[in-house]
Amino acid sequence: MTSTTIATANAEAGRACLRINRTHLAAIVLLAPAVVLFGVFVVLPILQALRFSFYDWNGYGSPSKFVGIENYSKVVTQRHFGTALRNTAFIALVSLLVQLPLALWLALSLYRNTWFTAFFRTVFFLPYMLAEIAAGLMWNFMYDGNYGLARALSDAIGIEPNFVLADPAWVMPAIAVVLVWKYFGFHMMIYIAALQGIPNDMIEAARLDGAKPWQIVRHIKIPMIRSALAVTAFFAITGSLQLFDLIVPLTNGGPNNASLTIVGFLYQFGVTRMRIGFGSAVSIVLFIICVAVSIIYQRAARMAEE
C-alpha cells in the first residue's frame, strides 16, 4: 500500500508540474502579444524619449553627445513654446468655461428619451464623429473671407471681408469656435448617460417636496452627476493638450506660429527637423503635464465620490 501510494504520488507530482505549465502557458499565450506590443510601442518609447531628451541627436548613428538639461532649457526659452503653452491654456479654458456649460445645458434639456431628443442628440454628436482633418478643412472654408460664412457675415453688415485665420489676434478664438463645435456633443453624451442614471423616484420625491425645476437641477441633478462633470473636465483638458489634427487644415500653426499648440510645436520644431533630443524634451514636458493632470483628476474624482 505505502509503496504504491508513493509511486502514484510521484506520478501525480509529475502531472502537477505539467498542469502548472499548461495553465501558465495559456496565460502567456493570452497576455504576451498585448504586453509585447504595448511595451515596444508605448512604454519603451516613453523611456527612450526620457533618455534622448538629454542628448543632442539628429536620429542617425547612436546618441553620443550628452548635453544634460540643455534641451529643456532651450525648450522653455524658445519664444514659440510660450505661445504654444498659452494657446493650449486658452483652449483648455474655453473648453471648461464655454463648451462644458453648453454641453450641460443641452444635456439637461435632452436627456429624456423621445424622438425629439433622440434626433437632436444625434445631430449634436455628429461633429465628434468626423475626422479632425476633415472638420478643420470644412471650417477653413467657413472662415474663408472670399466664400464662406465670413463673407456672408461681412456682406451683411457691409464691411470688407475679414480673414480671421490669417489674423494673429483672431485666429485662436476662431479655432476655439471649431473646437466647441466639434466636441461639445461628446461631453453632452456623457452628461446624458449620467443624468439617465439618476433614479426617477428621487426627482419625483423632490417635486413632491415642493422643489422648483431649477432647484431640482441645482440640488439634485448636478450633485448626482459630479463624477461625470469631473470626467468631462479631465477629457477637456487632456483633449486641449493633444490638440493638433484639427489645427493643421485650419492654419497649420500660423500665421507666424500664432496658433501653435504643444503638439504642433513638437511636430514643427522636433519631428520635421529631426531634432530628436529637443523634440524628446518637449515630449517629456507634455508627458509630465499629462500625468499631473491625471493625478489631479484621480484625486478630484475620489473626492467627488465621497
Partner: peptide, 21 residues
Amino acid sequence: TFFTIGLLFPVATAILPVFLT
C-alpha cells in the same frame, strides 16, 4: 497598472521614439 500607463498620455508624446523604432 502597467496598462493604465497607456491611458495617461497621447501618441504624440512618444512619436519620435516610435518613429525611430
